[in-house]
Amino acid sequence: MSAQVSSNASTSRAPDNHGLRLAVRYLVLVLIAIIFIFPLIFMIMSSLKPDGQLLSDTRSLAAFLPVGDISFDNYVDAFKRAPVLLFVTNSVIVTGVTVVLSLVVCSIAGFAFVFIDWRGRELMLTLLLATLIVPFETIAIPLLLIASKLPWIGAEGLTFGWLNSYQVQIVPFVVDGLTVYLFIQYFKDLPGELIEAARVEGATWWQVYRRIVMPLAGPVVATAAILKFLAMYNQYLWPLMVVQEETYRPVMVGLQYFFQLNRAWGEIMAYLSLITVPVLAFYLVLQRAFIASIASTGVKG
């Protein structure tokens, strides 16, 4: 009897527990969401306020609210202070081209490492993985010395030295160990029968890559693209070293235009809000592709 009572009690308590757990879970998720979203809200709200108010609001919750003297003046001033559109265009060009080239080259490299048997493969893979532990700062100076002497054929014919160009910001970053590694790991998990069947049917390696492997690679393409995009869009040290002309300057170096002796915080926030737009747009587009690719893929588990 007592056992029955306790069992009744436990079944009647179960939904409550479930509801409570759900509530707690949502509370935690909401808190985490707030932690992530608040800096963005702070940035956007601050970009609408004059400096004095922006600084005094940081002491209260008003920092996150569109209160007080609200206007788009900071945006107007930011455009006056720096060629914002030029910097964003430069960064979008450099980032876009690098991401596309990187996806093509690194996926082909990953494919060759996983599916094709060639001499020296293990050694090359080891060397490639070893590059993962080398920080960029350690190779920046040798890379600068090389880039400053490389030949290039362009509108002006053959020239030497890549400084002050788009290619100097793109080419060194097309291939990186991490992206190739991501593709290798993903390709390894694809069912070998698919590839074997295609080879038996007479498909060339190129056809296997184009028709079979890449259509299944949506998730890893999205992941690699997002990582590469962020790394490239946030480039600071390298462009600082190789770009002296404003014409090729990217957004992160451009941010420094706003750090004068008397810092214009409102304009800094306006500039940051503006340069965040391409990042958010890229992420939202890829997020869709990411979900679609998982939903449509025939390979699960």
Partner: peptide, 16 residues
């Protein structure tokens, strides 16, 4: 150049 990157830019350019 923006002031914050000026010295580093000069050092890098001197190297190159």
């Amino acid at each position: 150049f923006p002031q914050a990157v000026y010295n580093d830019s000069v050092t890098a350019a001197a190297l190159a």
